[in-house]
Nucleic acid binder design. Structure first.
Lengths: 169, 169
DNA sequence: CATTTTATGTCAGCCTTGTTGACTTTCCAA
DNA sequence: TTGGAAAGTCAACAAGGCTGACATAAAATG
């Protein structure tokens, strides 16, 4: 791996693995992530909420009835941090927290109509950007996009990402 | 755009634009970005530095001699915020700030040998993950990955991303 | 039944990294 | 020579991470 990068499949086929190409990929992630979060951030500024609230709302919408513990492991933050966010969402009537029927220690989280309305506003904006990008890039590019992103995740994160496909309470 | 999503190219070709597919793309970005930043974050924790220092170091390495103002527009933060980060890097001898020769108001930023060493450590870790993901996904997927990310950026961000290709002081 | 473990909530305090506003110094350019 | 741009600095604040300690209820286990 000294003279030619890669060194097995013949050089040219591996030019996409040069440090220069990798650096471009890294910067693409940086700039694209800013775009990715820009629209919801704009909507949330002015409200009392931020990106952390958006994330909670997204995953509650995604898995209605999810427990606090589930949410914690998906978001990867501490319960104190999540609690602060959930508290404000519950107090403001965007999220409904119901004691579990089988296990009464658990709280199951649901969006209220008001919460669902905000979720719609946020995800409409985020999807609009995503849709424009997808449409401009085309289906083959989108497939590659998803493949690389999945390969970039930590195994635990990937499991959660894939597990979410069918998941539920 | 009501009955069939898209509605022009025949339906099946546009299935990658469904809300479900877009939602998966959104979550892929979320989880992948966590992986993307995980390794440098691990290296930096314990030092006095964080992700903001990493970003500054990255772009100074990338464009040696860049001015504070250049850096500000790339990073998209306030000068007070950047100044706090630069101050610690300069005080700790990782970054060298030189008064401009033509315009003596400007400061040109360079990594010292110590700064370059940390940059190497951080970018080696980040590149290793990127390389593994690229290799697993293959060149076609990588091409799609970059295409979608570029389309996702704000126009200003995209200009900066592309401008960085040749750029210099 | 007694004990331990689990799920959750909460208080207090700290750190990083972002923000705004005000003010100063330097110094290029009109 | 003066206006304004570039940079630096101080102060104060907010969001959203973190740790540690402690409380409560309920389930699980002995």
């Amino acid at each position: 791996m000294a003279e030619r990068p890669g060194g097995s499949a013949g050089g040219e086929a591996l030019l996409f693995l040069t440090d220069e190409q990798l650096r471009k990929g890294i910067e693409a992630m940086f700039f694209a992530y800013r775009g990715f979060t820009a629209d919801p951030d704009r909507i949330l500024e002015g409200m009392d909420y931020g990106r952390a609230h958006h994330r909670a709302i997204h995953f509650i919408h995604r898995s209605p009835g999810t427990t606090v513990n589930n949410l914690l492991s998906i978001l990867g933050v501490t319960k104190q941090s999540l609690n602060r966010v959930l508290r404000s969402l519950i107090d403001d009537g965007l999220v409904d927290s119901r004691v579990g029927r089988q296990d009464k220690r658990e709280r199951h989280l649901y969006l209220t109509e008001k919460g669902a309305a905000l979720e719609r506003e946020l995800s409409d904006a985020q999807r609009a950007r995503m849709r424009a990008a997808y449409r401009a890039a085309g289906p083959e590019a989108v497939k590659g996009f998803r493949t690389v992103l999945e390969a970039m995740m930590d195994p635990d994160q990937r499991r959660q990402y894939q597990g979410l496909k069918e998941g539920g309470p």
